[in-house]
Amino acid sequence: MEALAMGGYGAYVWSCFGLAFIVTVVIEWRGRVRHNEIYRDIEVRIKALEERE
């Protein structure tokens, strides 16, 4: 517990590390979502074209 308190600076130190973790995870997750969306759009369009031929 004492290690987590950081000599009274716990709130500052942990919020920095926590925020860095959250921001990186969110930005990476959003990147993956966008990749999958773009891939799906292309897939739908190409398969529709393929069926018409």
């Binding site: 950081m6 600076y9 130190v13 860095a20």
Partner: peptide
């Protein structure tokens, strides 16, 4: 910890 800043200096590792 740091001699001036105590444990607050650990923020350097993400900043």
């Amino acid at each position: 910890m740091d001699y001036q800043q105590g444990d607050a200096f650990r923020i350097i590792y993400v900043h």
